[in-house]
Design a protein around this nucleic acid. Structure first.
Length: 316
DNA sequence: AAGCCGTGGGC
DNA sequence: TGCCCAAGGCT
């Protein structure tokens, strides 16, 4: 690297990490006394879920299951129930399975290497890097959606990162990472926070950006994205039905009659049900019988629910 | 290797 | 209102 480039990179590091020290949100999993287990739980909960919704659930989990062994000692259904409405409940299942693996394979301690973390259920490349960096202070190339977006704008000059993580993006992230452990950890956390608070997907607050003058995207006149993100369908999908069924199971004390879950639109007409309970909400979807059965079978197949007599319940 | 997998807040 | 998006992972 040319000396000028090294100097420029060094300035980016100091500007963004300095911004972080002044603007970072006080999140409990960033506190020095937070355990690696706490960091791992936070990272999994934060997969595709906003911080504000994670906060209260993470607090409950840490109080109830302060270490992996505590969670592993309970049925996976308890993890799913305590997951509440965070979404993607299979993450709760995977966290429970990860806790079990940590107990059986790692003596109850969250592993401290990227490779070992990667073997845990629900831990992919991002989460493994994040835990190694934030829980164990290691130099890791952390690449999440926030970091990718900041890199795309600041360096590449694009409005958004590519639709899937490319080798070029990975190389760029590696090239930007500070050489020392502490510096790299601070850099990862800082760029991520910048993406979450300032360099947001929509309506970025460029006036608050510590590296506005260096931004290739702004310099290029803020060109539009190269593509239009295709939104995920929701209404009428299996996911919607599965979600409604899970809401019923979470709220229920014990098994819920299968026939109650599978009640089709036919029953809706006769009933005086108002949409104030999860079951009423499920029925209000008026999903076809075939879809209801497919959704139910899917939940069982994925381990989110199990059959119990003529009913369905969270794994006990 | 695209498509699937929840949920709710903000614009 | 409806649509987009949020610290991804798995198959």
């Amino acid at each position: 690297m040319e000396p000028e480039q090294a100097e420029h990179l060094s300035q980016l590091h100091s500007r963004i990490t300095s911004w972080f020290t002044r603007n970072a949100r006080p999140l409990p999993w960033r506190e020095p006394d937070c355990s690696p287990w706490g960091v791992l739980v936070s990272e999994v909960m934060l997969q595709q879920t906003p911080v504000v919704r994670v906060l209260p659930v993470w607090q409950e989990w840490m109080q109830r299951w302060p270490e992996p062994a505590a969670l592993a000692a309970e049925p996976s259904g308890e993890a799913v129930r305590a997951w509440g409405r965070l979404g993607y409940p299979r993450r709760a299942l995977r966290l429970h399975a990860a806790a079990t693996a940590i107990v059986t394979e790692h003596g109850g301690l969250v592993p401290d290497t990227h490779a070992a973390l990667l073997t845990l259920p629900g831990v992919g490349d991002y989460t493994a890097a994040a835990v190694a960096a934030f829980a164990f202070g290691q130099r890791e190339t952390v690449v999440d959606t926030n970091i990718r977006r900041v890199h795309a704008r600041l360096v590449t000059g694009n409005a958004l990162p590519s639709q899937s993580l490319t080798a070029a993006e990975m190389r760029l992230a590696v090239s930007l990472l500070p050489d020392d452990d502490a510096g790299s950890v601070a850099w990862n956390a800082s760029v991520m926070e910048l993406g979450a608070l300032v360099c947001t997907a929509r309506n970025p607050s460029c006036e608050d950006c510590p590296v506005l003058a260096d931004c290739a995207w702004v310099r290029a006149g803020r060109p539009e994205p190269h593509y239009v993100p295709k939104g995920q369908a929701w209404h009428g999908t299996d996911r919607q039905v599965r979600g409604a069924m899970m809401a019923v199971l979470r709220e229920a004390e014990g098994p819920v009659l299968r026939d109650l879950l599978l009640a089709g639109p036919v029953d809706l007409a006769a009933g005086q049900e108002t949409v104030t309970t999860p079951l009423a909400a499920l029925h209000a979807l008026s999903a076809p019988q075939e879809q209801l059965e497919r959704a139910l079978n899917g939940l069982v197949r994925d381990g989110l629910a199990e059959l119990s007599g003529d009913g369905l319940r969270l794994p006990a």
